[in-house]
Amino acid sequence: PDTTLLVSVIQFPKFFTPNGDSQNDTWVVKGANQTFYPNAKINIFNRFGKLVAQEPIDGQGWNGMSQGKLMPSGDYWFDVTLTPANMNKPTINKKGNFSLLRK
């Protein structure tokens, strides 16, 4: 019999360009979804450590807005907690940064 193994390969983009051209318009964690991680938290901070966005794992991603305002070009930081559906697997905590580029 055939056996199917589902795996999640997680990617954190290094930049995004929210200019409406449908290319990299949102910053979104790739490869993670609610099937693998039903309890996931994605927090995005500005360079001063202020929380500017919280995104759902299955959402469209961060569009570069915070409280209805366009956030400026620059570096932003993320803190992602992925709690797996399979309780035998460890929770994944990832932190890093990425760039918001406006042209």
Score class of each variant (00 low, 15 high):
4 T>I: 15
4 T>R: 13
7 V>Q: 13
7 V>A: 10
8 S>K: 06
9 V>L: 11
11 Q>W: 00
13 P>M: 13
14 K>G: 05
14 K>V: 06
16 F>W: 03
17 T>H: 11
18 P>G: 06
19 N>C: 07
19 N>D: 15
23 Q>P: 00
24 N>P: 03
25 D>G: 06
27 W>E: 01
27 W>G: 00
31 G>V: 05
32 A>P: 03
32 A>V: 02
32 A>H: 03
33 N>E: 10
34 Q>S: 15
34 Q>T: 01
36 F>V: 00
44 I>K: 04
45 F>C: 07
45 F>Y: 15
45 F>M: 06
46 N>Y: 04
47 R>P: 06
50 K>Q: 13
51 L>H: 03
51 L>F: 12
51 L>G: 00
52 V>Y: 09
52 V>H: 11
52 V>N: 09
52 V>W: 12
53 A>R: 12
53 A>E: 10
53 A>F: 06
53 A>P: 10
55 E>T: 07
56 P>K: 05
57 I>M: 03
58 D>R: 08
58 D>V: 08
59 G>Y: 08
59 G>L: 14
60 Q>H: 07
61 G>H: 10
61 G>R: 11
63 N>E: 10
65 M>L: 15
65 M>H: 07
65 M>G: 00
66 S>A: 08
67 Q>G: 02
68 G>H: 10
68 G>Y: 07
71 M>I: 00
72 P>C: 04
72 P>Y: 07
74 G>S: 10
74 G>H: 13
76 Y>M: 12
78 F>Y: 15
79 D>N: 12
79 D>I: 02
80 V>M: 04
81 T>L: 09
82 L>H: 05
83 T>C: 01
84 P>Y: 09
85 A>P: 00
86 N>Y: 01
86 N>K: 12
89 K>Q: 14
89 K>V: 00
91 T>M: 10
91 T>C: 07
94 K>M: 12
94 K>H: 05
94 K>R: 14
95 K>S: 02
95 K>G: 03
96 G>A: 09
97 N>G: 14
97 N>H: 15
98 F>E: 01
98 F>P: 05
100 L>I: 05
101 L>R: 13
102 R>N: 12
103 K>P: 13
